[in-house]
Simulated assay, not measured.
Amino acid sequence: MNKLRGCLHSSDGVRCVMLATGNPGGPGHNAVKERWIDPAPGGFSPIRDPESGETRVYIPSRLEDNLAMMRNDPGYERRLMATGNSQLVKAWRYGDWNVTFGGAFDDLWRPDRHILKPFRFPPGFTFHRSFDWGSAAPSALQFWAISDGTPIPEMGGFVFPRGSLILFGEWYTVAKNANGTVKPNVGLRLTNQALGKGIAGRSAGRTWAGCVADPSIFAEPGRESIHSDMTKGAREIGQTLDFKPANNDRITGWQRMRDVLENAAEDIPEKPGLWAFENCINFLRTVPTLQRDESKPDDIDTDQEDHCGDAARYAVMSREPPRMRLGRTRL
């Protein structure tokens, strides 16, 4: 889309305008929502771009606006409502951009279950980190608490089954516009030593175990590995990284992600699940809407902003399979 805007020009002074149409959903959902919808969710309000000075506007379009469709095909709405997919109905019938469908986790994702308000962790919880490397694209560092089955007083004694993963913090090196909005899938191009220093500084004060990272950063293609460079940055502030290569089995990893999300959606979870604190905005912005690869449906389309998803997959794969960890503490 940026490239198309850059091609708009006229040597004769003709005014150049871009018109774009689309529905919620698909690989570009987050990018469209970030640029056009979020700044003015109700639509019809001009949005001035702080970098280019150009003005754009989101114009909502719903079935009621298509008078010809309603007049000539009165059965369309009934057929749409009969699809049985509530998220699809919200998107296509009501133009709701706060939906997750057509993706890898939309049938499992429950914001009311998976998103948590922060709470204090019991002494028996342990802490892990996962990391997906990026430079031109963002890198994703995630902080996880692993439950030992102790009840949580702030949640009325709710029990996260032993081995559950709770994402409580993140560092996502994504670029932002002058007004503070995210540039989807654009990284800060930090050096590896700067990444290492940033990770170490944000990790100080806790004891970490089972930390895993993108296995590609450990490769030594005729030079020191990316991980070695990052370690140098950590040493500058007297810290270490202690990452190990993650299991990068993509198909198994995404299925395990589905397993723990499904477990967490239960009224009373019996098996380890995955939850996220509400402050982990980039995980919540990108992971629930991750789309499947059309040519390989059991995998994720790698052309989208999948870095938080990859980091979470590394964390999940570092744990024992849920079926092997059924023990939990009951109230």
Rank of each mutant, 00 (worst) to 15 (best):
D298W: 02
P272S: 07
V186H: 08
D298M: 13
S130N: 02
A209G: 12
F105R: 07
A136H: 11
A40C: 04
L4H: 02
L167N: 14
E320A: 15
M81A: 09
D229N: 11
P245C: 12
R129M: 10
P46N: 05
P161V: 03
A204V: 08
G222P: 11
R235W: 07
L63R: 04
N185D: 15
A204R: 14
K176C: 11
A213D: 08
A219S: 09
F160L: 03
N177Q: 13
D96T: 09
V17L: 15
V316Q: 04
H307F: 09
P321S: 10
P111R: 02
F283E: 01
D259P: 04
Y172R: 11
R189T: 14
D298T: 13
D107R: 00
G26E: 02
A312R: 04
F143W: 15
H128M: 09
S147F: 01
K197Y: 08
N72M: 08
A140G: 10
E154F: 00
I59F: 05
N30K: 08
C308W: 01
R285H: 05
G238T: 03
L19N: 06
R235S: 11
D229I: 00
R323T: 13
D148M: 05
M1D: 08
P272H: 02
G75K: 13
A219H: 11
G157K: 07
R48E: 11
R292C: 06
Q239T: 02
R328V: 06
V287M: 13
L261D: 03
G124L: 08
F121P: 01
T252P: 00
R202F: 14
I217L: 03
I300T: 03
T191E: 13
L290T: 07
E294D: 07
D301I: 13
N263Q: 07
A82V: 02
D112Y: 00
L261G: 01
D229V: 00
D259N: 08
L88M: 14
L8I: 07
R93A: 14
T302G: 01
I152G: 12
D148W: 01
G75N: 10
D12P: 00
T240V: 12
F277W: 08
A82T: 01
G13L: 06
N177K: 15
T150A: 11
R129N: 02
R313P: 06
L331Q: 07
P118N: 10
T207Y: 05
P138W: 03
D132L: 08
V89N: 05
F168K: 00
N72P: 00
N192P: 05
R256V: 02
F158T: 10
P153C: 05
G43R: 04
V260Q: 06
H9W: 07
Y76F: 14
T100I: 03
H9N: 14
D107L: 00
T286S: 06
L165V: 04
R292K: 15
R250F: 15
M70H: 00
W171K: 06
W275L: 07
V174I: 15
I166G: 01
D73H: 15
I237W: 02
N192W: 03
L241P: 10
H9Y: 12
R15E: 15
Y94T: 06
P118W: 04
A204T: 06
L241I: 06
T289G: 02
P111M: 03
P39Y: 06
N192G: 08
Y172K: 13
K232P: 02
Q291Y: 09
D148E: 12
T150H: 01
